[in-house]
Design a protein around this nucleic acid. Structure first.
Ligand SMILES: [Mn+2]
Ligand SMILES: [Mn+2]
Ligand SMILES: [Mn+2]
Ligand SMILES: [Mn+2]
Lengths: 218, 218
DNA sequence: AATAATTTTTAGATAAATCTAAATTTATAC
DNA sequence: GTATAAATTTAGATTTATCTAAAAATTATT
C-alpha cells in the first residue's frame, strides 16, 4: 500500500517520462511535485526499495513494471472522477483537475470499477486524455483512413501509414499534423481526391495521400 | 484548514457526545479513533488551541460552536457520499461506511453542494441517519400524532406531547418507547382507541394516549 | 585538462502524529 | 480518611515527509 505522497511521485514520474526522455531527473520531479531536490532523493530511495522505480544515483529514474501499474491505477481514477464531475455534477472541464487530484487517492478497487460502469465505460476524460482500464491498458483508438471517410464526417489526425521523410514533410507543410481536427468537405469523383476543412481553410489532398492519413473519428 | 486526523477526532467527539453525556473523556476518544490515551491528550491540546473544543485537564472535552460546525460538515459529506454509493453505484447499505470514511475528507465545498443536488437533496443516509444541510441544520422530522394515523400506517415513535412522569411511566410499562416501530392495526369506532402492532404484539391505547404520542411515519 | 557551473546527494533539523513508560490526578474501596 | 485502583497527562522516542546548508558528482567552459 503506497502512501498518498508516494502515489503523487509515481504519477509525476509517469507524466515526465511521457513527455521528455525515458530517464527522469531529480530536479524535474522536484519541480513537478513542488518540493526540493533533497526531498526527492529521499523519496527515490524509498521507491527504489519498494521496487517501484529503477534508480541509479546521479543518473535518473524510470518506473518498474510494478511502478507503472501503480501510476496507471491512479491516472485511471483521476480521469474517471473528472468524467464524473463534468458529466454528472455539471462542472466545467477546467474546474475539475484539483478535485480529481484528491479523489484519485481514494483506495477502494470496487468503487473505481463501479464508477467506471456508472459512467458508461468512458474511453477518455474531459480533456481528451485516454483512460486506462482496470489492467492498465489504454483502449486503442479506432483509426480510420482518411480515404474511407464520407462527406460530413470529422475527426482528428492521429497517425500515418507512410513514414517516409518526404510524406511527413508534405504533411507538415500543409498543416495536416497530429491532433489537427478535420472535416470531410468534398470527395471529387474523378480521381477520389478529398477536400478537407482544416482551421476553416479548404485543403485538397490526393487519394494516395488520403489513404495514408489515419483519423480518429468524432 | 483542519488535517484529516483533526477531522476524525472532531467527528469522534461529536458522536460520543451524542450517545453519552455532554463531556467526552480521553479514553472514550482513544477507543473511538483507535489510538492511545496519550496521543489523544496531545491532540486535545491542539484542538483546544484552535478553539475547536472546550478542554479542561482531567475533566473531559466538548465541541465549541466552531468545532460543532466542522464536525457537522464532515458528517454531511460522509452521509451524502453513502447515499451516492448506494443510490448511484448500487453498493449495499452495509458496504459503504469505510469508503465514505475516505470520501468525507475531500475538501471542495462546491463538490458537496453539487453532490447533494445531484442526489436530490436527500434528508437521510442509507442507515436512516439524518443529513445536516450546508449550514449544519438537520431537517426536522415531520412528526404526526398517533391519533391522526390510519389503519395500515406505520412509523417509529419519535416524541411525546405530554411529559408528566405518570404518562412516561405508562409508556415505559407498555413498551411504547422512543424508536419503537408501530403499525396501526385497528381503530375502534366507539371511543377512537387504537390497537397497534408492536414487536408482533397487539397493544391497545386510548385516544387520549394516542393524541400524545408522536410518530415519524414510514 | 583544469576550472567553473550545475545537478544531485548527504547531513542534520523540523513538524505532525504516533508510541511506551513513568508521573500525576481523580475516583473507589476499605 | 487513607490506601488502592483507574484515568489522564507528561516525558522521551519513533516514523513520515519535509526543509536548509554543505559535500560530492556530473556537466559545461575555457
Ligand atoms: Mn486532470
Ligand atoms: Mn494527486
Ligand atoms: Mn457511515
Ligand atoms: Mn474519517
Amino acid at each position: 500500500m503506497n502512501s498518498l505522497t508516494e502515489e503523487n511521485y509515481l504519477k509525476a514520474i509517469y507524466h515526465l517520462s511521457k513527455e521528455g526522455n525515458a530517464l527522469v531527473t531529480t530536479n524535474n520531479i522536484a519541480d513537478s511535485v513542488s518540493t526540493k531536490a533533497s526531498s526527492v532523493t529521499d523519496m527515490l530511495k524509498k521507491l527504489a526499495d519498494k521496487n517501484l522505480i529503477h534508480y541509479v544515483k546521479y543518473q535518473g529514474v524510470s518506473l518498474t513494471g510494478e511502478g507503472l501499474q501503480a501510476a496507471l491505477g491512479i491516472i485511471r481514477k483521476h480521469r474517471l472522477w473528472e468524467v464524473f464531475l463534468v458529466e454528472k455534477l455539471n462542472f466545467k472541464w477546467d474546474e475539475v483537475h484539483d478535485i480529481a487530484e484528491e479523489l484519485e487517492h481514494i483506495r477502494s478497487e470496487e468503487l473505481v470499477d463501479r464508477l467506471q460502469e456508472f459512467l458508461g465505460n468512458p474511453k477518455s476524460d474531459p480533456h481528451g486524455d485516454l483512460i486506462p482500464d482496470k489492467h492498465g491498458k489504454f483502449h486503442k483508438k479506432e483509426l480510420i483512413r482518411l480515404s474511407k471517410m464520407k462527406v460530413g464526417d470529422s475527426g482528428s489526425i492521429s497517425g500515418v501509414n507512410e513514414h517516409s521523410a518526404g510524406f511527413l514533410r508534405y504533411l507538415e507543410k500543409t498543416g495536416l499534423v497530429l491532433g489537427k481536427k478535420v472535416v470531410i468537405y468534398e470527395i471529387i469523383e474523378f480521381d477520389s481526391s478529398v477536400t478537407l476543412l482544416v482551421d476553416n481553410q479548404e485543403i485538397t489532398v490526393s487519394r494516395d495521400v488520403a489513404k495514408n492519413i489515419l483519423v480518429y473519428e468524432q
